[in-house]
């Protein structure tokens, strides 16, 4: 029973990590790459570490695994937010096919994206 659970969890984790890595290679611009990769990889690593916790099933190991997962889930949004903001300030452009950019008037970047292509209902 635990063997099957370990196999399922590690397979799920490996698939999520593979998706994240394919995404980081073939997505068109920096922001879409960032918004795909960090979360999928975090979820995949959570799955793999949960498989490790099930395999050992000791109190100390489970505590360690919960600490790592909690830490990853707290820090990865903060890191993504910081690096996205820095990238926007340093002037990395959005993808050409982006619809709307409402952050444009806060910082004076020339992203050349018209501000009204989105349906306003």
């Amino acid at each position: 029973m635990t063997d099957i659970l370990i196999m399922v969890l590690s397979t799920l984790g490996a698939i999520f990590i593979l998706i994240a890595s394919i995404g980081i290679v073939r997505m068109p611009d920096f922001y879409t790459r960032l918004s795909i990769t960090i979360k999928a990889a975090t979820l995949g690593i959570g799955c793999i570490l949960a498989a490790a916790a099930i395999h050992f099933s000791e109190f100390s190991t489970t505590t360690k695994v919960i600490a790592i997962i909690f830490f990853l889930f707290i820090t990865s949004p903060v890191a993504a937010f910081l690096i996205a903001r820095t990238a926007y300030i340093t002037g990395i452009k959005l993808w050409d096919k982006s619809i709307v950019d409402e952050l444009q008037d806060r910082y004076d970047n020339n992203n050349n994206i018209p501000n009204n292509r989105c349906k306003e209902e």
């Binding site: 690593i45 570490l49 790592i68």
Partner: peptide
């Protein structure tokens, strides 16, 4: 991402 996946490899 490389280091995060490295954590997974260690696990």
């Amino acid at each position: 991402l490389l280091i995060t996946v490295g954590v997974g490899v260690i696990g």
